[in-house]
Simulated scan of single mutants.
Amino acid sequence: MSDSTASTGSAGPSDSAGLAGLGGRTALVTGATAGIGRAVALLLAARGAEVIAHGRDPRRGADLVAAIEAGGGRARFIAADLSVTAEVTRLAAEAGPVDILVNNAGVWDFATTPATSADMFDRHLAVNTRAPFLLVGALAPEMAKRGRGAIVNISSTAATWVAPIGAVYGASKAALDMLTRNWATEFGPHGVRVNAISPAAIRTDGTELMFGGNMDAFDSVTLRGRAGEPDEIAEAVLFLVEDRSSYINGAVLAAHGGERSLLPS
């Protein structure tokens, strides 16, 4: 699951080879002030991209920008509430032309269907599905005109794994997976690659809080025997936006540590 409410990661040392990788490119990362988004923003900046960091908290935004600049990178922060259409439109306008878009921001509420209100339903679809849709609609055409661009959507294993709770969260991410494949078809012929990453439980402040600090419960769920780390997802994002993944388009990359078999060993 993606996380836009937790803080993690630090600006690592940048080397000349890494800086050459994304030098001259601009990346917009939503939900960049915490969790996976922060790790992504730090890594892309360390590899030479100018990062436009989106979030809701200006204080955390300033902290992220300072961390990136301390590592020799370039960044600026834009605050916006992605549940509001006008705010998403403003974010796209203030970001301007970008070469990389990482749709990471997300909300989740693992409630049963009877306990899921209409407002909860609408917020999940607004942030997890509609906001990426509007940002791609606003930014991808300019990428296509330049003949180059990379979009990565942070999905979730909840899009394909069934559970007795969290149906609306899973539905919002399943829709994002379908949009990913459609966008790859729509913009791929014009040089814009669109892919998604589907993480399982990732260890962040937000997920630790959600599960009452009991993330160790996920040690038995995956073949890796542990929950994932934000930096591991950030590395997957880096791969998908760099030229070394130039032949990958329309893929949903599973990053869940390996599924355990339901059959007895």
Rank of each mutant, 00 (worst) to 15 (best):
A93K: 11
D15T: 14
A34H: 10
T89H: 01
M215T: 15
L240T: 02
T160K: 13
M178H: 11
M120K: 06
G191D: 01
A75C: 14
A41E: 06
N103A: 04
A234W: 05
A163K: 11
R90S: 14
H54S: 05
S172L: 03
A20M: 07
G96K: 05
G188F: 04
L176F: 10
G9T: 05
E69N: 08
L253G: 11
A255I: 07
V136M: 14
D216G: 14
N128L: 03
G149R: 13
T89W: 00
A66D: 14
I248N: 10
P230Q: 09
G96E: 01
G23W: 13
A27H: 06
V102G: 09
F133I: 00
I78P: 00
G170T: 07
A34R: 12
R203Y: 08
Y247F: 15
T8W: 03
D177M: 07
T89A: 14
A175K: 01
L82D: 06
V194K: 05
F239A: 09
A17S: 13
I197G: 11
R244W: 08
T33W: 04
T5G: 12
L91S: 02
L263K: 13
T113K: 00
A167S: 15
S7C: 06
D243E: 15
R146N: 02
D177A: 07
N153C: 08
L19G: 01
R74M: 02
G257A: 11
S14H: 02
F133Q: 07
A255G: 04
R244T: 15
A105V: 05
P189Q: 02
R226P: 00
S7N: 02
A174E: 06
D15V: 06
S261K: 00
I151R: 12
A49W: 05
M215Y: 03
F211P: 02
A171K: 12
L179I: 11
